[in-house]
C-alpha cells in the first residue's frame, strides 16, 4: 500500500497517509511500552521473590549446567537416532493404514477392519503402556526371533503409537481432496492406484503437512518416554544427575536440546504452511 509520491496525489490522500504514519508510530510505541510493562513486571516479580535464589541454584546454575552438558549431549544423540528411525517407519505404517482405510474394495474388508481396530486401539492407549508392553512384554514372551535390542523395541513402540495418529492425519488429508479430482483422474484413463498415487496423495500430503510435522515434533519429545525401559537418553541422564545432586539444572539443559532440535521443524512447518496457502490461493 505504498502511495506514489508526487503531484498526482490528492490532498485527502496525503492527509490519509499522514494519519496512517501517525497511527503506526503510536501503535509501535504502545507495543513497546506494554511489552516493557508486562515482561518487566513479570521479571521483577520472579527476581524479587524470596525463593528466587534457591530456584536459580536448583534450575539455572551455570556450573551445574556445564558439568552435565557433555553427558546430556552424548545421550541426546540416542534421542535423535530413535526419532529419525521411528519417523521413517511411522510414515510407512501410516500411509499403508490410511490407504487401506480409504480404498473402497470390498475384498479388503478384513484388512480394513484390522486397520480400524489398530488406529482405535493405539490412539486410545497411553503411549507409556505401549512402551511397557513392547519393552518388557515382548521379551518376556521368550519367542525366538523377537527383537531383544532395547533400541528396536523402543522404536517399535513409538512406531505403533504414532503410526495410528499419523495414519488418521493422512486419511483426513486424502478424504479432503475433492471427489472431482478422483473423477478427473479416472476420466483421463488412470487406474485407481495411479489416480491415488499421482493425483490424490500429492494434494493430500501437502494439505496435512503442518499437522504431520506437529506430530513429529511431539514424537521427538516422546523419545524420552523410552527411558522407562532402561534406555539412557538425554532426560534420563538429567534425572541421574538430579538424583545425585538434588539440582534440576540438568533437566533444563536437556530441555534446551529438545527445544533446539524442534525449532528447525517448527520453522519448516511455518514455511510449508505459507507456501501451500500461496499456491492454493494463487497469491
Amino acid at each position: 500500500m505504498t502511495s506514489p509520491a508526487g503531484a498526482g496525489v490528492s490532498r485527502r490522500q496525503l492527509e490519509r497517509d499522514a494519519y496512517r504514519r501517525r497511527r503506526a508510530r503510536s501503535r509501535a510505541a504502545v507495543a513497546v511500552v506494554s511489552t516493557l510493562v508486562v515482561l518487566g513486571g513479570l521479571a521483577v516479580v520472579v527476581l524479587q521473590s524470596p525463593g528466587w535464589d534457591r530456584v536459580r541454584q536448583t534450575y539455572f546454575d551455570v556450573g551445574d549446567a556445564k558439568a552435565v552438558l557433555p553427558d546430556v549431549a552424548e545421550a541426546f544423540w540416542l534421542n535423535i537416532r530413535l526419532f529419525l528411525v521411528a519417523e521413517v517407519l511411522i510414515l510407512v505404517v501410516a500411509i499403508t493404514v490410511a490407504i487401506i482405510r480409504v480404498v473402497p474394495s470390498p475384498a479388503l474388508a478384513p484388512v480394513k477392519l484390522l486397520a480400524v481396530v489398530y488406529t482405535d486401539v493405539f490412539r486410545g492407549t497411553p503411549t507409556i503402556l505401549v512402551v511397557f508392553l513392547i519393552g518388557f512384554g515382548v521379551p518376556a514372551l521368550d519367542l525366538a526371533g523377537t527383537p531383544t535390542s532395547l533400541f528396536w523395541l523402543g522404536v517399535i513402540a513409538l512406531t505403533l503409537c504414532y503410526g495410528a495418529y499419523v495414519a488418521e492425519v493422512l486419511r483426513a488429508g486424502i478424504l479432503s481432496v475433492h471427489p472431482t479430482q478422483w473423477a478427473s483422474g479416472r476420466a483421463l484413463g488412470l487406474s485407481y492406484a495411479q489416480t491415488m498415487r499421482h493425483i490424490v496423495l500429492p494434494q493430500a500430503v501437502r494439505r496435512v503437512t503442518p499437522p504431520l510435522l506437529n506430530d513429529f515434533v511431539s514424537l521427538q519429545k516422546d523419545t524420552a518416554l523410552l527411558s522407562i525401559i532402561g534406555l539412557v537418553e538425554a532426560l534420563r541422564v538429567a534425572q541421574v544427575d538430579a538424583g545425585r545432586t538434588f539440582a534440576f539444572t540438568g533437566y533444563v539443559v536437556a530441555a534446551c536440546f529438545f527445544i533446539v532440535a524442534t525449532i528447525p521443524l517448527a520453522r519448516l512447518t511455518d514455511y510449508l504452511t505459507v507456501r501451500s496457502l500461496r499456491r492454493e490461493n494463487g497469491i
Binding site: 518388557f136 522407562i228 525401559i229 532402561g230 534406555l231 534420563r236 534425572q239
Partner: peptide, 8 residues
Amino acid sequence: LVYDDTTK
C-alpha cells in the same frame, strides 16, 4: 541400564 524404580 537405569530404571525408574526397582520394580522395572
